[in-house]
């Protein structure tokens, strides 16, 4: 899976654009993680699905296509859902048992936070209008202010 295909797929799945994802510094590590668990064949299928999604310009059609070709697929779906959670939480969610029995067990397929960076760069904190607990503080007294009304960064 090349970086471009992986970025397109990640952007589609997370709702954050490629620039925002690249800015986390986590793209290479997350691509390696998905490839390691998926194996070459499934990784290639994922890359193709990502490229096909990127070629679809209509939002509604693309969403339907993502569901059909990726999220509803018994092999790609679990990978995609774990990838979303990896982006949002910095944490890998292992594949379900039936997936493992079809595709094999991999040593990388364990529940873990990949790195302190991946914890800090979890998209969930931006999505909820806050900051990672224990990092990127907003400053003294910021908590007394109203929460931001709409997404501020990484749109």
């Amino acid at each position: 899976m090349d970086d471009r295909a992986f970025t397109l797929l990640s952007a589609m799945l997370t709702g954050y654009d490629g620039a925002a994802l690249a800015a986390t510094g986590c793209l290479p590590a997350y691509r390696r993680q998905v490839e390691a668990v998926a194996g070459p064949e499934l990784a290639a299928r994922m890359a193709d699905a990502g490229a096909a999604l990127a070629a679809t310009t209509d939002d509604a059609a693309r969403e339907a296509q993502a569901r059909e070709t990726v999220l509803a697929d018994p092999d790609l779906g679990p990978l995609a859902r774990s990838l979303i959670q990896l982006w949002y939480l910095g944490q890998w969610v292992p594949m379900p048992a039936d997936w493992v029995s079809r595709n094999g067990a991999r040593r990388e397929d364990v529940a873990r936070i990949l790195s302190p960076l991946s914890y800090r760069e979890g998209l969930v904190w931006d999505a909820i209008g806050a900051h990672p607990l224990g990092a990127k503080p907003q400053g003294f007294g910021a908590w007394a202010q109203e929460p931001p009304a709409s997404p501020e960064a990484g749109s």
Binding site: L13, T14, E63, A80, R81, I84, Y88, V124, A127
Partner: peptide, 22 residues
């Protein structure tokens, strides 16, 4: 738990997931 539930059980992804989380 919110991310896990929305992704694994509610089938959310993309902008819908992001907005629902907020």
């Amino acid at each position: 738990s919110d991310v896990s539930r929305m992704v694994e059980e509610e089938g959310l992804f993309g902008p819908a997931l992001r907005h629902r989380l907020r």
